[in-house]
Amino acid sequence: MTNPETRIGKRFAALKAERRAGLVTFVTAGDPDMETSREILFGLPGAGADLIELGMPFSDPMADGPSIQASSLRALKNGMTLKKTLDLVAEFRNADNDTPVVLMGYYNPIYILGVDAFAAEAQAAGVDGLIIVDLPPEEVDELWKPARDAGIDFIFLTAPTSDDARLPVIVKRASGFIYYVSITGITGTRSADIADVETALKRIRKHTGLPIAVGFGIKTPEQVAEIASVADAAVVGSALVDVIAANLDPDGKPEKGVAEKLLALVADLAAGIGGAGEKVA
């Protein structure tokens, strides 16, 4: 069901061939500053990230817990903007033409830039997909159409509250993959029970053949491995940005080695699903 021509389609096909699930890593663009963020982003594929979810910082991240809220605010404080986020992706794309990059964030900065301009610039930068937290199917068409025309996948969130009546509405416009939010809650808080996740994925798979990535509350290599046993990919975010938060000096400047520490955690997470170090950046 994924388009085999896209980076996302190719990556999931490759994962299938390797008979393993993928690791999706989330970091916020520009966190804690542009230089460190670039170092992290460029190091992610080599550390074992199969897909990269890049947060577009927003002042009011309503679906995020304290870790990602703080991450977003650090980036904004250091001058990050949506334009600079797109520039960062373009720079990354020059160095890596295979690893899919999915932008995740909230609608307002995109709306202010303009949906058509955003779709065109995202395409030019080499963005593969979008996850826009506050655009449910009811409101999505104004961005979904320009994104589709630009060949960018729209990845929709499904949640434990998405019942059999709701799922068809969601998957109707979905492409690339489906993101299953494994808990009712915000990012980086509690973790789901694996049996509940398995039941939910079975239900979602009745409605779509797209790969399913599972996120929210996944922090350790053990949890990644557990999710990988039932899902097509596991998403880790808060645990990674927590590494940044833990390695800032009193002025909020990154301490030396923060990127290495974060990438080491990515490698640990990837090891649990046989993904670490198998690819080169």
Partner: peptide, 20 residues
């Protein structure tokens, strides 16, 4: 019916909240 006053209003919430 979708909660719009012209271009304003609507339901811009995370999917988890939509059913609620």
């Amino acid at each position: 019916e979708a909660g719009h006053f012209g271009i304003y209003g609507g339901r811009f919430v995370a999917e988890t909240l939509m059913p609620l």
